[in-house]
Design a protein around this nucleic acid. Sequence first.
DNA 1: GCCAACGTTGGC
DNA 2: GCCAACGTTGGC
Length: 141
Amino acid sequence: MAYWLFKSEPSTWSWEMQKKKGDKGEQWDGVRNYQARNNMREMKLGDLGFFYHSVKETSVVGIVEVCALAHPDTTTDDPRWECVDIRAVKDIPRPVTLAEIKANPALSEMILVNNSRLSVQPVRPDEWAEICRMGGLDKAP
DNA sequence: GCCAACGTTGGC
DNA sequence: GCCAACGTTGGC
């Protein structure tokens, strides 16, 4: 089981919109970056991820689960681009801001901190547990 | 709104 | 294969 982080600008695709899709989830389309795509290819059913709001809120707001493996992105005819489907699992009780993440030495190696432009990225288990703790979850899922 | 960082494209 | 030019992302 692996952990990931999905980044989205809330004006384009927000956590609220994601939650409205319910258990069926929605494809994480629109990724046009090889590194991000390769990360999605690595994902397995049941893998968990953070849902991060970029630009305006810059915080981790929710937890999602991979519910379909990588498949062609239906928003383009270009066969290079693939995406997984994800569904909302739960809210982060207290959203964890980028400022808090940057201020925490245990999270200094996160890709979110060091490569702010990668939109789909892996998260280490220790980083996953730490952000869950900061977000007010008693037990990391 | 600005700008730094990064990725992609295309000329040579 | 290199590198300059350009476009996009995202933090501030």
